[in-house]
Computed example of a mutant assay.
Amino acid sequence: MKEFSLVPNIVLFDTCREFVKNCKIGAGDLIITSTHTYVAHFESLIKDAAVIYIRTYGQGEPSDDMVEAMYTDVKNIDYKRVVAIGGGTVIDVAKLFALKTVSPVLDLYDHIIPGVKDKELLILPTTCGTGSEVTNISILALKSRHTKMGLAVPALFADKAVLIPELLHDLPFEFFATSSIDALVHAMESYLSPKASPFTEIFSIQAIEMIISGYQKIATNGEAARIPLLNDFLIASTYAGVAFGNAGCGAVHAMSYPLGAIYHVPHGESNYAMLIGVFKTYMRLNPTGKIKRLNNILVKLLGCAEDKVYDEMEKLLNRILQKKSLHEYGVVREDLILFTESVMEKQGRLMANNYAELSKEMVLGIYNQLY
């Protein structure tokens, strides 16, 4: 059996002002965001809301420590609605604060505490990659366990996913690059997932086509060429979020988590570090299965022979974000064994979604190739 659902209402606004007025943002709202985003886009528009700035509680990827520190301040605030305005870190953390019980957060992720929602949740992405505005997943780095884990429960769905292209206009190119590559990975992995359906495939394919064609324009015309394409990239990210929210991701994400958790590599960048290695392994293991359909899509987009699609894709992506070998992040050979053990022991949810089954030896082999 395969299911498809689209839970949040998706709302598009042209401007932040239109959003604030339409949704009556103010008293009773808890806004979780960054200082820059709030000052630049919302400070002059909103009165009486409680505002929490994410970087007050830590840098880098979202973590259990960050959530616990924030909970200390938030638990005494009377709020009925959570408004998340930001990228993946803000959104993953903010989802938890729509729950009745947030702390201890490790008990949430171990399913000792049930995820019960008792507040309305509005999510406004400020990057074009997370797709988290339409998923029921919150991913944290669990510092004490040296890994990342995802909590996936229905209570984490937003009530409204709010898309405002204006919020992406001041997104630096490096963050545009890492977030949009993350969306591309979402689309590609969900397309090959055993949970994929004809409905998820539509969203996956559309996201792949929009992102790659956008990258080709940027590669030809320079970084500024992204500005008129931001609405397309924002929508493509949401398409990819719909796809992976239903079909799931696989080994690319699973294998990226140790790199992100231990060496603090941005999520989209760590995904890109794994993408080509994993997909070339899939090609070697099962070249005539569904991946052939994906390759045919890529052939048309990239204008190359089928046996060159992943080489050509890497060339294109390197024009957007230069890929690094694992050792360039400071990874040492001994880490690769630890990474592999972490993936096989802690990322079963993702590894079950692989296009082809990957053994422990295969995972270690991919890491070694990418080293």
Rank of each mutant, 00 (worst) to 15 (best):
T200V: 10
T288D: 15
T281G: 12
L259K: 03
Q206T: 12
N286A: 14
P258W: 02
L163H: 05
D107T: 01
T220C: 12
N246G: 04
D307P: 09
D182I: 04
F233W: 01
P194G: 08
I202S: 10
G365H: 13
F4H: 08
A240V: 02
C16K: 00
L317V: 15
K143T: 11
K323P: 06
S180A: 08
R319Y: 06
E68S: 04
M70H: 01
G303L: 11
T89D: 08
A94M: 02
S144E: 09
I91H: 05
E120C: 05
V102M: 00
K80E: 12
K119Y: 00
N354A: 11
H169T: 15
L151Q: 03
C16Y: 01
S138V: 09
T35Y: 05
L301A: 14
A187G: 09
L151Y: 07
S342K: 13
T288G: 12
P194Q: 07
A254H: 01
K324T: 11
I85Q: 00
K315W: 01
G268M: 07
Y109L: 00
I276D: 13
Y53D: 10
T101N: 06
V252C: 09
I123P: 03
S342I: 10
D65P: 02
L326Y: 06
S204L: 10
L350M: 14
A187T: 08
L99F: 01
L234P: 04
Y191N: 10
D335F: 05
C128R: 07
E43I: 01
S197D: 08
N295K: 15
A305D: 15
S44F: 00
F42G: 03
D335P: 08
K100F: 02
S237E: 09
A356V: 14
E269M: 09
A240P: 00
S5C: 11
L99I: 01
L151M: 05
N286D: 15
L321G: 13
T340F: 06
E120R: 03
A224P: 02
G87V: 00
Y263L: 10
G365D: 14
N295M: 15
Y38D: 04
I202F: 13
L99Y: 00
E334I: 11
H111G: 05
L121H: 03
T37G: 03
N271E: 13
L338T: 15
L358F: 07
A177H: 05
A187C: 09
K119P: 02
T238S: 08
L142N: 03
S138F: 08
H169A: 11
D78M: 04
I212L: 12
K75I: 10
T135D: 07
S103G: 03
A251P: 01
C23K: 07
T35D: 11
N9Q: 15
N295T: 15
N221M: 10
D78E: 10
D307Y: 13
F157D: 06
Y310S: 15
S34M: 02
L326N: 08
A247R: 06
L338K: 14
K80F: 02
I54Y: 02
G245P: 03
C249S: 12
P287Y: 14
D182C: 04
L167W: 00
